[in-house]
Simulated scan of single mutants.
Amino acid sequence: MLRGREREQATIRALIAQAKDGRSGSLIIRGEPGIGKSALLGLAAELAEDLRQLRGTGIETEAELPFAALHLLLRPALDRLGKLPEPQARALEGAFGLATGAQDRFLIGLAALSLLTELAEDGPLLVLVDDAQWMDRSSAEALLFAARRLHAEGIALIFAARDTFEAPGVPDLRLTGLDRQAADDLLRDHAPGLGPAVRAQVLAVSGGNPLALIELPQVPDAQEPLPLPRRIQEAYEARIAVLPPGTQTMLLVAGLDDAGDLDGVVRAAGTLGVGAAALGPAERAGSCPPRAGGCPSAIR
């Protein structure tokens, strides 16, 4: 359950309803780490569970690889390349290393738009891109090109990004801290046993940041003047320190995985003698932030 964010939830609901009605739209959800961008993408996915969905993410270590993020997003739709106009299909094939030839950025942007439109021929389409600020520039240009040209295809395209992501021409939805009541409700959800003094202290220090509200009760002496990201990191460290050694190893492997590939994480941990069951204690302790495969270092 999302606390607060009524305006933001209404905006997302309207965008999805619009796509179901055959009209398209795009949106960028912006804000600082932990402010709830990924949670709103998750809400969009739930609201559109009956729609076809494409999900992608910017990966920091792939930010210098041209078209890496676009490939990650469009890979499930590459079987439709034959439906595109030939120049566009060739351009996208060249971008993804499926053919040789010069890379025409205009044609690649058109191809991305055409491929999304082709998918939407089967019914409304929801496209979600998390951590857009870490997309490689070529992918960002192609997707923003498509976002600015959506019209009546039945597509909802939603990005989540920090403020460093430049996207002229695409509507913004900027997140700030939760209001006092929503912040207090969220804190009671996750730390019901806090005394009044500690509760007031956490509310003041968090600035309404949802991740901080969830994690700061785990940090001793949260009143010390440390930057908020460092406080949250300490909270994760305290939570992880009491987990079994095998679970800590699993979380370390997950933290090194940028792609969010849970199967890959489990296979890698298996080479270290740690089985998939080691994830159980982390899940029960709430030590994994809500990203596929993303454990302690995934404080986005």
Rank of each mutant, 00 (worst) to 15 (best):
A254P: 06
R231E: 06
P227N: 03
D221G: 12
V219S: 03
A212I: 05
T249W: 11
L252E: 14
Q248F: 07
L228C: 04
P245W: 07
P227T: 15
L252A: 14
L251E: 08
L243S: 05
L211N: 00
Q218H: 15
I214M: 13
L243N: 03
E237G: 06
G207P: 08
G246A: 04
G207I: 09
R239I: 10
R239G: 08
R230L: 14
S206H: 02
D221R: 11
P220V: 03
V253D: 00
G207H: 10
A254C: 05
I232A: 03
E234G: 09
G208A: 06
T247Q: 00
L252H: 12
I214T: 12
I232F: 11
Q248D: 07
A222N: 13
P244M: 05
L228T: 11
P210C: 02
T247V: 05
V253N: 02
L228S: 00
T249D: 09
E237N: 05
V242E: 05
A212T: 02
P220W: 02
A212L: 02
P244L: 00
L226Q: 04
P220D: 13
E237Y: 09
A235K: 09
P244T: 05
P245D: 04
R231L: 15
G246P: 08
V205P: 12
M250I: 11
E237Q: 04
Q233H: 05
P217E: 02
P244V: 06
N209H: 02
L211M: 06
E237L: 09
G246F: 07
I240E: 15
A235Q: 10
I232S: 01
Q233N: 12
P227I: 14
V219M: 00
A222G: 04
I240C: 12
V253L: 01
G255W: 00
G255A: 12
A254T: 07
E234N: 15
L211H: 03
Q223T: 14
E224M: 10
A212E: 01
A212D: 01
D221H: 08
L228R: 06
Y236D: 10
G208F: 04
Q233P: 07
V242C: 10
P210A: 06
L228I: 08
P217K: 07
I232T: 10
A235N: 01
P220I: 03
